[in-house]
Write a protein that binds this DNA or RNA. Sequence first.
RNA 1: GGUUCCGUAGCUCAGUUGGAUAGAGCAACAGCCUUCUAAGCUGUGGGUCGAGCGUUCGAGUCGCUCCGGAAUCACCA
Length: 595
Amino acid sequence: MEIVLKEKIKEAVKIIYNSDVTDELIQIQETRKDFKGDFTLVVFPLLRFSKNTPEKTGETIGNYLVDRFPSVSGFNVIKGFLNLEISDNWWVAYFEKMVSEKSHLENCQVEVAETILVEYSSPNTNKPLHLGHIRNNLLGNSLYRILSATGHNVVKTNIVNDRGIHICKSMVAWQNFGKGETPQSSGMKGDHLVGKYYVLFEKEYRAEIEKLVQAGTGEEEAKNSAPLMKATREMLLKWEAGDIEVVELWKLMNSWVYAGFDVTYKKLGVDFDKIYYESDTYKVGKDIVLSALKDNILYRNDDSSIWADLTPDGLDQKLLLRSDGTAVYMTQDLGTAVDRFNEFRFDKNIYVVGNEQNYHFQVLKALLKRMGYPWADGLIHFSYGMVELPEGRMKSREGTIVDADDLIEEMQETARVVSLELGKLSDFSEEEKEDIFRKIGLGALKYYILKVDPRKNMTFNPAESIDFNGNTGPFIQYTYARIKSVFRKAEQMGITPDATILIEAKIGIKEIELIKLLRKFSETVSIAAASYSPAVIANYCYELAREFNQFYHDYSILGEEDQAIRNFRLVLSKLTSEILFTGMGLLGIEMPERM
RNA sequence: GGUUCCGUAGCUCAGUUGGAUAGAGCAACAGCCUUCUAAGCUGUGGGUCGAGCGUUCGAGUCGCUCCGGAAUCACCA
C-alpha cells in the first residue's frame, strides 16, 4: 500500500505542481494512534514544490488522492501531516490475501540465499553453564531460526574450549584432592562435578600464594612458583605432547562435562549441526602461525614466542604462540576459522560471543586478512551484552553465579505453582501438566532474555522472580491458548471458519488494528534477520498479543449473531494464533494449547 | 591513559532510515468475571530522554564538548 501511495503522490505532485520528486522526499509512515487515519504523508519535504503552507499542500494532495484513488476514503491535515484514511474494503481484501498465503514467511525471503555459520554456546569444559551462557545459547539459536526463516542456509556450530590452561586446573585439582570422585559416586551432574574442582583449584592456589607471600616471596613470583600452578603448566605441556596418562584423564573428565551439557542443552531446546573442539583446531592454528612466520607476516621474539605486529591496523602487538611453544586462545580461533571455511565455504561466519571480546575479534579479523584470507570479511562478531546482577557482574568468588540448571528448574517450579493456583488444568494427566509447566517456565525465561536488545547489557534480579504477567512469555502463550480455546468451543458448536467469504463482513476498529499488525509480521522478520535481533520479534509478538486481547475483550467471537462477522472474527483469530506461533517459534519458545 | 559501548518513568525495557503530545510492563491506587480462559481488560498518578552547544522547518534519534557507568588494551579464555 505504501508503495502504491508513493506512486500516486508522485503523480499528484507532477500534475499539480509540475515537478518530479525523488522517492526519499515522499515519506509515508503509519498514522499515530491518537489521530484519525491509517497512513500519513509528511508534507514538509514537498513544500519546496508547492511553495505553499504545509496545511494547504496537504489538503491539495489529499483531495487529489480521494478523487483519483478509491482505496483512499478520506483524509485530514494536522500541521504538516496528511493523514490518509484507507477504506475498510481494502483492509479486508488485504486480510483475505494474507490468509490465503501458504506460509507466513513467504514475504520475507531473501533474494540471495547465503551459507551462514552461526557459532554459539562455546562453553569451557571446566565449569557448568550459567546465566550468561543461557543468553548466548538463546540468542544463537534464535538467530539461526530467524536467518533460516528468511531463506538462508544456516549451519549451527559450537566450538568447545576443551583444552588450555584452565582445563588443566580442574584436572590438577581433581588429581590432588579428588580421591577418585566421579559423577556416579557423587551423584553430581558431570559438569557441576568438574566445576567443583575448578573452584577448589582457585581456592587452594590462592592459599599457596598467600603462604609464599608471607614467607617473603614477591606477589608475581609467588603466582608463578606456587606448586599448583607449576603442576598445571607442566600438565598443559604434557597434554600438548600427547602424554597418555594426562590425555586419558582429560578425556574422562571432559566426557563427564559433555554428558552434563547435553542435559542442559536439551532442556534449553538448542542443538548443533557441527561441533568443533579446540583440541583439534589449535593444531591447525599452530601450523598457520608457523607458516605465516615463514612468510614474515609474524615475528619471533628473543624468548622465542611468536607475535603479530598489528600497529599498522591501529591495533597492538599480539601474542600467538607462547615461549614454550603452546597455543593461546587466538591461535586456535585462527585454526577454527580456516577449518570452517575449508569445510563450508561460508559467506558469513557469525560468532555469538559477548562484547567483552570485541577486541579479540577485531584482532582475529585483522590477522586473517593479513594472512591473505579474503573471506575474513565474512567474519561477523555478533557482540551481545553481559547479563548483570543489580550489584554488577556475576562473580564466582562471591558465589553470585546464577547456574543455568538451577534457573531452569526454578522457572518450571514457578510455572507449576502459578498454574496449580489458577487450577485450570485439573483434567490433565500429570505428564501433560508437567509438559505445560515446562513450556511456560522456559517460555518465561526465554522471552525475558530475548526481548532485550542483544547489544545491550541487561540486568537480572534473582530476588524478583521472572514475571508471568504483562510483557512476558506466558502472556503471549496465554493469548495463544485462549484462541485455541475458542476454536475448541467452535468445534463443539459445529462452526468452522471459512476463509473465502470474508469480504461480506463489516469490520470494526480493533479488527483493522489487528490486521495492520498482522500485516507487519513479515517485515518484522526481515528486520530481525537484517539486524540480528530476536528482540524485534519478541516485542512484535507482545504487541500483537496485547492487541488481540483488547479485541477479545471488546468483541464477542462465537457469540456474534451475524454469521459473516462471526466467521471473519474466527479467521482473524486463527491468523493471529498462527503468527504468534510462528513468531514465538523463531525465538525457540513453544506454545501450549491450554494453560 | 588509549579504544569501544552504554545513560529514556521508582524498577525492567521499547522507541524502523531525524517527524506530530516520548511508549509498554512491573510496582502503587481505582474499577471490570451468571457471557468465547481475569496469566486478561479499563482508568489514575509518575519524564528537564545524563548535561550543554550545534546542524535542521523539525532531534530521544545526527555532530562536538563535558559528566556518569561498563568492557577491553594478559605468555587468561
